[in-house]
Design a protein around this nucleic acid. Sequence first.
DNA 1: CCTCAATTTGTTATCGATATCATAATGCTC
DNA 2: GAGCATTATGATATCGATAACAAATTGAGG
Lengths: 356, 356
Amino acid sequence: MKNEDEPKDKRLKGGDAQKLTMAEVAKYVGVSAMTVSRAFRQDASVSEETRKRIMEAVDALGYVLDLSAGSLSSRRSGFIAALVPSINNSNFSDTARGITDALEDTGLQLLLGYTDYSAEKEEKLIEAMLRRRPEGIILTGGSHTDRARRMLNKAGIPVVETWEIPEEPINHVVGFSNSEAMSLLVRALAGQGYRRFGYIGGTTARDTRGSQRRSGFLRTVEELGLGPGRAISFGVPPISMEQGGQAIVSLLERWPDTEVVLCVSDLSAFGAIMECKRRGMRVPGDIAIAGFGDYEISSICHPSITTINVDCYGIGRQAAARLLDALQGSGEATGDEITLTGYRVVLRESTDRGAQ
Amino acid sequence: MKNEDEPKDKRLKGGDAQKLTMAEVAKYVGVSAMTVSRAFRQDASVSEETRKRIMEAVDALGYVLDLSAGSLSSRRSGFIAALVPSINNSNFSDTARGITDALEDTGLQLLLGYTDYSAEKEEKLIEAMLRRRPEGIILTGGSHTDRARRMLNKAGIPVVETWEIPEEPINHVVGFSNSEAMSLLVRALAGQGYRRFGYIGGTTARDTRGSQRRSGFLRTVEELGLGPGRAISFGVPPISMEQGGQAIVSLLERWPDTEVVLCVSDLSAFGAIMECKRRGMRVPGDIAIAGFGDYEISSICHPSITTINVDCYGIGRQAAARLLDALQGSGEATGDEITLTGYRVVLRESTDRGAQ
DNA sequence: CCTCAATTTGTTATCGATATCATAATGCTC
DNA sequence: GAGCATTATGATATCGATAACAAATTGAGG
């Protein structure tokens, strides 16, 4: 597959004039580099005719703008960073989509990083991102290492924390109370007559949202006089489908008369439901199960899964909007620094009291 | 939430000395900027003692390296780009994880973009990435716009196409034949005695891997003398769970005696199975269903889903490895330019002939 | 004690674009 | 057609790091 009939300098297949610069395009067209630079920006004042000629040359020569040079000079990197715990989670990818959409036509690009639910990885990623000088940064959650906080404070760029309401916000917040949301679900199910509540989901610092949901569960069960709640931890967050299945087995062994089990996410709820069915139990007949997050799987699954719908996409859009506000340098604050996003209970088959 | 007791220049909460440069760190320590620069790289020759003093100063001042300046000078951006069709797809995120892992300790960072299965979006993303001068680029699939191809050729960086075997590779390829893989699944099921095969999944150019699977299906059914295959398209790729459910209804209306249905992915297979169960059909008793991709859901689901397991993670690792080889400028070719990755049939409950 | 090599540090030019200011061309009004 | 505003283009310095080369320091060997 190697070609012999070419110069033997180590060059890549198909690659030719590797280093094509704006100055060369300029010379080719017969204008100055500055004019070429202007032609690339829509606001700049270049005559339509010149721009056309330049763009033709750009096309003919195959020139591609070099932002690394441009951003050094303009002190604008042209991107914002967003860190999410997991890339393979439709909730977070919906948020990422929201950000991307909100950024459209702003000339800003999104750079995504994933922290794998680890504050240490988050710290490293924050540093890696800051080294490229993002114009703003969107984080998931409010739990960061001290060093990460220091770096973010120093950076002098707007920061948005999302998906929860941190005790000590760094800057802007777009999210909701996970504990309140879980509480709402408990109350909704209690309102349907359920009394003996179980819960699947850990308490580790890795998943602060999960911990908040758990504490919302325990608190509410207590408040309703139905306590103490029966909570099982299993595995390392994020709890997988498989771990959901293992957890419900443990839970039912320990508390066999449990009526309804709430899970930290729909994925573990799905695992739990499937495991129950595999063991010949009926859901919701023998045991009712609910999740959190309203993933696609929950509406498709048979039985469909009761859950909390979160405005994931909206979180993304709002977070980006707050960032853009801040970048616009709007002297006055845009109202509160905390933007609350919505959630709602979605009752489905998996907790239907009428069904058998 | 606004503070009045501060200078009113528009400064961000917590932000102080915004522009801290290497030269200032150098002055603080009493060395030259060059020495500071060296201290940041492990290979450089700086005495241990000096490096320690510099790093302490970096810490004390909160200095963060500016890569946009560095990469301009060194002509090394320090990142590679990878484009995947969808961010919310565990197959592709496994590949992304493979790339990330392979890049560890190379000093290279991964920048991920998602094309939403659109060649136009891919073209735009390729341009956006190239403007930041990645040192290499990993693509999904072999179907690109002409302009994208031109840009990639001009860029003079290694390119790896993954997840399929393109007719006209740009440079390196790491993948497998989707049509052969689907063919293998058809043969495995035919071997179990199935005769009347159906298929769910489109033919659009948006999802070339899906098209290849479909053609592999049709070809093999024909070859086995079981044709013509009964194929249904539904919706725009990637086919969702819900569309899988709708598709199987259409398929069974049109060809009620179908014995087994193969789906372009596990997600549509799952949707199809759940829809069947909702309608009171037994899977595999009344209809057998198989998927493609071996997503987590397939092993958890009840019934568990027969599928093709693809080495998604390996694709990522290998793609990154090929890229690194090419970057090492290894004069000689590293064997073939096409790296084949494995796949295997995973037989599970959803096509179990013994079950009812 | 001198020479040469190895190690550590410094100086200067440069990467490729853009900010800024200067200048040329154009158009409009009276 | 002079005067002035407006638009289009150019020249130069600069962003903040690193490459490349130079110089200073140290140590070993004869």
